[in-house]
Nucleic acid binder design. Structure first.
Lengths: 233, 233
DNA sequence: TAGTGGTCTAGACCACTAT
DNA sequence: TAGTGGTCTAGACCACTAA
């Protein structure tokens, strides 16, 4: 019982991580099993388990039943990004938010949108194009396809004062989704909307959300230059 | 005791999330406390606690002692990104990996690098510029500043067969770090190195890592066009 | 088949905070 | 001050998997 560690699972985690950082346990090494560690730390196995699960979630160790726990050979860093609604993101920076809906129409699905939503090409989808502003300056251009089949009746015409973005987040809790980040040169139209030179490098996110097996929406957001996502590791 | 839910905390989580999705509990609503839910589900409070902690981590609910648990008003989606070593990322796509070190020299820290690493401007830092290839094509250009003060003696000249990227991940476990994602137009030099037109939109990551209070390295990676990060929500 | 992690339980005490 | 979440415990059984 070397380390009293009377601060609970977080101090157990800290001690274990410290041993990895100090290379007492090197990448690839097995570390003692939960029961032995619990004895060493003078705590219950569940406490060690919690610490080790957290380290595994962070990519520091790999765990397999019967094989035990090993220090990750080539640690995969995991970063958690918070993706707030645009309004919240803008206002969190102390700037004022507003948005302008550029267009709203039922259109036959473009091939790309159809593929992302898993509907037949040409299926009738609601398309919304919206410009978001921070302190009056263009912040992001949103091009969204919505599947009317999964929206409550009337929703397509009534988001109230909310952007489609925020309305969906509040009203269509979803069970699945994916998101991608990439960079793209501004096309002529995007450049004009965002007030930048054609060809400017834009940060782009593409998101698709589903509920059960039904696609709800696919959206592409192009952010004005200078936008960055930041997080801790 | 409505729901037997004999599959453990994950089924409790699923049922709770289902009630949120079906708007039985609406955004802003309080939900029953852990003890009541445990009674309803016929399980221990710890099991409900685990499910609710997971939902809180996912941004679905907000919890405060005494105030209880509420459905998040404007859910903040959280996405977890895996950030592997470049070699692993390339090879995971079935492509061959190699890298070429373009330069390695002690240089006075540029203002930007000095600020990111928290050292005096002009301090002597090791600068490494590396080009990474996937299937022989340029994949990413790396511009890295290293703090020699925190490297083991000789490390600056001996990474073996590993890229600095991978050597650091394996040998310098760090306690803190941050990462940012943005987009930038390729400058003349970058364009030449990556084999793209000047001005092409590049996906850029900037990472700084620390051990205790000492900065280890600051690195900027510019990825060839077409690169994207993808994850589930 | 045996060792290890994954999880559950019933109870307990503590920490925070709304009232 | 009292209600709620946060965590710990000691023990138990289960699930997976390496040998």
């Amino acid at each position: 019982m070397i380390a009293p560690a009377r601060n609970g699972w977080e101090s157990v985690r800290a001690e274990l991580l410290g041993r990895i950082a100090r290379r007492i346990w090197k990448p690839g090494d097995s570390i003692p099993n939960e029961e032995d560690l619990a004895y060493e730390f003078g705590c219950a196995r569940a406490t060690v388990n919690r610490a080790l699960r957290d380290l595994a979630a962070g990519g520091y160790v790999e765990r397999r039943r019967k094989a035990g726990t090993r220090v990750a050979l080539t640690p995969v860093r995991r970063a958690t990004l918070s993706i707030p609604v645009l309004r919240v993101e803008v206002e969190a920076g102390g700037r004022s938010y507003r948005f302008a809906e550029l267009s709203r129409a039922i259109e036959p699905a473009a091939d790309l949108a159809a593929a992302r939503l898993g509907v037949a090409a040409g299926a009738a989808l609601l398309r919304l194009r919206t410009l978001h502003f921070a302190d009056g300056a263009p912040f992001a251009f949103e091009d969204r396809w919505l599947n009317p089949a999964v929206l409550p009746d009337g929703a397509a015409t009534e988001f109230g004062d909310l952007s489609a973005n925020e309305w969906l987040v509040r009203n269509m809790a979803f069970s699945q989704g994916d998101i991608a980040f990439t960079a793209a040169n501004a096309g002529a139209e995007e450049a004009g909307l965002l007030g930048v030179a054609p060809g400017a490098a834009l940060f782009v996110t593409e998101r698709t959300t589903w509920r059960q097996d039904q696609a709800i929406t696919a959206v592409r957001l192009a952010f004005a230059p200078g936008y960055r996502i930041h997080t801790n590791l």
